[in-house]
Design a protein around this nucleic acid. Structure first.
Ligand SMILES: [Mn+2]
Ligand SMILES: [Mn+2]
Ligand SMILES: [Zn+2]
Ligand SMILES: [Zn+2]
Lengths: 125, 125
DNA sequence: AATTTAATGCAACTAAGTTGCATAAGCAAA
DNA sequence: TTTGCTTATGCAACTTAGTTGCATTAAATT
């Protein structure tokens, strides 16, 4: 499917993710793009890109929402499920290519899990 | 050490946690206690009880802060670190007595982790 | 009972994210 | 390339969790 309309704003957001290769918080995105588009537009674009399997999101240590590129997802098959790391010093967060086996719980049906590791990143050690 | 002053409000909050045996979100606490104390007081009390190792907190699936009793913590030894579960249906969350081994990451120093499992609880299955 | 200091109430604030609505811009068909 | 349909955007106002400053109250200690 792909994103419905490739507007100037959508392209701008996508470029940011291509360049940086980092994950970005919504707050940071709004900050970086505040001269090019409205805050509402930023929030709507990342949600749209998420629906399309282009980005995924996760909650950082302070409750902010972060976005990062998906590796092999499509709109119909959204499987990007992996742990994340966030640095206590600089605040950056990263996607981790680690497999975490989700523990089973008796009498419960677990369908997803979010694991956030915290500590110090390579730069801040 | 223990909480500095055992005020009427502190006792009320502690009783709630004794009775319910569930974990409670700050929002729910404010709601339950809105006739007995101010919202600010609720937030300050749970933070104080956290400092003392009486409660611990975690982020639920919607970013809300939840509080639950600690098992064997003191103000100087705050070790209550375990995964949590939150039901997608009813929204309740629970502490899990499961050991999760935190994966190591090269070039990083990981000092803590938060694991949140989501799905359906016993009541909602 | 007097004194000290921590705890509370209240109102105003902060900040992330959302909503409604009028306008603008993609895009496909003509 | 113009028309017309529909999605995307800007803007302002809103929502909601949580915080802050400050005056007042109430624990605890003597
Ligand atoms: Mn990721
Ligand atoms: Mn817990
Ligand atoms: Zn760092
Ligand atoms: Zn449930």
């Amino acid at each position: 499917m792909g994103v419905v309309r490739k507007t100037k704003s959508v392209v701008t957001v996508l470029n940011l993710f291509e360049e940086s290769d980092y994950s970005l918080s919504a707050v940071r995105l709004v900050e970086l793009l505040n001269k090019k588009m409205n805050k509402t537009t930023v929030y709507r674009i990342v949600e749209r890109l998420k629906d399309e399997g282009i980005l995924h999101s996760f909650a950082g240590k302070d409750g902010l929402t972060w976005y990062a590129k998906c590796k092999g997802c499509t709109s119909s098959n959204h499987v990007d499920s992996h742990p994340h790391f966030q640095c206590r010093e600089c605040g950056k967060s990263e996607c981790l290519s680690i497999d975490v086996q989700v523990p089973a719980i008796s009498n419960h049906k677990v369908d997803s899990a979010e694991l956030l590791l915290m500590g110090h990143c390579a730069d801040c050690l």
